[in-house]
């Protein structure tokens, strides 16, 4: 298989597989070798990102961040990643409430495509919307989150963070806790960690567990303490406030009592368990501030790894010169 040595002296060291996909729409499209390759690429990007250096890999290329849902953090992360690779980055926020839903999606895709970008990073509130858009454009598309479907770069950055601390992914017991039913982060993580032979657990009240979740996770728990026992990693998910309005969850305080991560519940996990959260956090809803800021928390590091992962993904998709077509 053709391997490529990055030509730039500051560039990632080592050889990587040619990335054979045109888009990154989800973890489900990747095989285990490709997942590891992307994590390796991201690992190699960390020194660049840390030293705030700029690589010329994407010089002269145009990246459009198209966000149909607000997300300051993810959008900023993709913007910095693109800029550190020398790309010209343009942000387009589309307020879904002000435009007729969906109609704009295919229209917007056609309009943006006519401007000849090299990559479009898309977030959309509907599952499958990013895939639909990818069918209408001639450039690379990166899924920055579609509905409750996938958020592949989040799962990659979580995996990178875990691997840096634990040295591996396979064989680890990883508990994902919270609104599994509505979470794209949970789906992408379950697919990735499953492919990496990790032991995945989901912990949630029944009303936040989707049907057939047992086909995506190794184990399912409704009791948080039981679910945390022996866990190497605890991933908390954000609870949308509207879920706790009495339909799925009676109240925030009830949720916190049974599913909020505090020191007492965390003590059931392994002593060196990592605490993770994709952000933004609801302190006091799904996580005790003392735990979020405590010694086991790697939440800030996740944000840092996010830039490296997004650099790696953009680089893999766009910098294909010298690779077999």
């Amino acid at each position: 298989m053709a391997r490529r040595q990055p030509e730039h002296p500051d560039g990632p060291k080592g050889a990587f597989l040619p990335f054979r996909h045109r888009h990154l729409l989800g973890i489900a499209q990747l095989n285990p070798v490709e997942i590891i390759d992307l994590i390796d690429r991201a690992e190699a990007m960390i020194p660049i990102s840390r030293q705030q250096k700029t690589l010329p890999n994407l010089a002269g290329k145009t990246q459009i961040n198209l966000f149909f849902e607000n997300s300051t953090r993810t959008q900023a992360s993709f913007e910095i990643a693109g800029k550190r690779l020398g790309a010209t980055v343009m942000n387009m926020a589309v307020n879904t409430s002000s435009v007729a839903k969906g109609e704009t999606l295919v229209d917007t895709a056609a309009t943006l495509n006519a401007m000849q970008p090299d990559a479009i990073v898309v977030r959309h509130g509907s599952s499958g919307a990013v895939e639909l858009l990818s069918q209408k454009v001639g450039c690379a598309v990166v899924n920055a989150g579609d509905g409750a479907h996938e958020h592949p770069t989040q799962a990659l950055l979580d995996a990178l963070t875990i691997r840096r601390h634990k040295g591996r992914l396979n064989g680890l017991t990883i508990a994902i806790c919270g609104d599994i039913a509505n979470s794209r982060v949970a789906r992408s993580n379950l697919i990735l960690l499953g492919a990496m032979q990790a032991r995945t657990r989901v912990i949630a009240p029944k009303s936040l567990l989707p049907r057939g979740v047992e086909q995506m996770a190794s184990e399912v728990f409704t009791d948080m303490r039981e679910g945390l026992r022996g866990a190497d990693v605890v991933m908390m998910l954000r609870l949308q406030n509207e879920r706790a309005s009495g339909k799925l969850i009676p109240s925030v305080r009830e949720y916190y009592r049974f599913y909020g991560l505090d020191a007492e519940k965390l003590a059931h996990a392994n002593a060196d368990a990592l605490v993770m959260h994709p952000g933004p956090m609801n302190r006091g809803v799904e996580i005790d501030p003392a735990v979020a800021d405590g010694p086991q928390s790697v939440i800030t590091e996740q944000v840092e790894m996010g830039v490296a992962v997004r650099m790696a993904v953009l680089d893999a998709l766009l910098d294909k010169e010298g690779e077999d077509a």
Binding site: S127, G128, D146, G147, A148, H149, E150, A181, R184, R187, P210, R211, G212, V213, Q215, M216
Partner: peptide, 13 residues
């Protein structure tokens, strides 16, 4: 249809 397929696709069942 509610079920594993909907869950996997992130669609409401």
């Amino acid at each position: 249809n509610a079920g594993p397929l909907a869950t996997f696709r992130g669609l409401k069942g």
